[in-house]
Amino acid sequence: MSSGEIFVVVFLTAIVLVIGGLLLGLLLAPHSTNPQKGEQYESGIPTRGTSWMQFKVGYYLFAILFLMFDVETVLLFPWAVLMKSLGVNGLLCVSFFLVVLVLGLAYAWRKGALEWK
């Protein structure tokens, strides 16, 4: 049995799990409607205004930093697999790449981008 087939089977099973669970829940659980029940739960106090608003920019900054390092990891994977055959030469080439990245991290650090404000 090939991996692709198992992947498709697992994918479909996950769909069955969610839909089956939801249907079972809808079938077994009681229902009652009430104008207050559907309101957002904020510890019993009515919500003021919408929650779909601008949000703190700090999270966005970390997402950008994450993108930089995540792409780096992706680019390093092929080298990691072939590390043994590439040897010292490969390591030297990759360390140049790593130094550039560490410089990037050092820059972000120095600029205070890693501080939570």
Binding site: Q40, T50, T73, F77
Partner: peptide, 30 residues
């Protein structure tokens, strides 16, 4: 959810999980 608690919680989860995913990825790369 249109709920402030939920929004704050998910934003925190986002910042936390993507940050720590880097380290998890790097150690698996190692």
């Amino acid at each position: 959810s249109n709920n402030k608690y939920a929004l704050i919680g998910s934003m925190r989860a986002g910042a936390q999980v993507i940050s720590y995913e880097l380290s998890a990825g790097l150690s698996l790369l190692t």
